[in-house]
Amino acid sequence: MAWQWFNRLGSPKWFYEKTSAWMPWLLTLSLLIIVGCSLWALGFAPMDAKQGNSYRIMYLHVPASIVAMAAYYVMAVAGAIGLIWKMKLSSMVMKVAAPIGATLTVLALFTGAVWGKPTWGAWWVWDARITSVLILLFLYLGVIALQEAFVDQEMADKASAILSLVGTVNIPIIYKSVDWWFTLHQPASIKMTSSTIAPEMLYPLLAMIVGFYMFFCWALLAATRSEILQREFKTKWVQKILMADVASKQATGQEA
């Protein structure tokens, strides 16, 4: 009985039906938080004494980086569950996490480069943190490429799950890189016990991190849902959903 939820969670149909109601709320709320925090960060947070206004990039750079790493964990854990218990839904989550994570990693690298120019005087340096995040991007691209490389979906899922599990070793390296190699990138400013950042600068950052996490949850659910429709295409319940979509589109088309 205790494991019933686990079996249910493995059912794409159950997952699709249960998540339907959350989707618009999750997207609206996360976008409201992100837009609100962007305004807060751009206009209302105080200017940094050393870096001036360029530090406002932090409010995008830090949340994007944190969630890009979290997305990798999600991908690797989902891949492992798919590999061990042959849970189809889990493999789908692993597959769709890769492009989302890759996009966030690109955003983190890009904002980092643009922030680096006025702060360090260089767009790019082969610093330990930056290099390990670049490797993270290549791992994501590897998973995406493996998914495309196989005709057989089960083989593609197995191969990309193994790659994402092997790549997990990179995550603690990214996290610890600023402590192990004291190169250019600054160490973490937010810690559980003591943060080296003023409260009026910290609150919008924490709120933005929450907003990015929520957006990631939405993105992961939305992408998984569309992946379910694609993979379960031939089942009756998916055809029913698709036909309802066509019917509602035709109805609005006639009104217009």
Binding site: L42, N53, S54, I57, L60, T111, V114
Partner: peptide, 10 residues
């Protein structure tokens, strides 16, 4: 320019 290009990328 640095700040705005980042938010545009976001």
């Amino acid at each position: 320019p640095y700040v705005w290009v980042c938010y545009a990328a976001g």
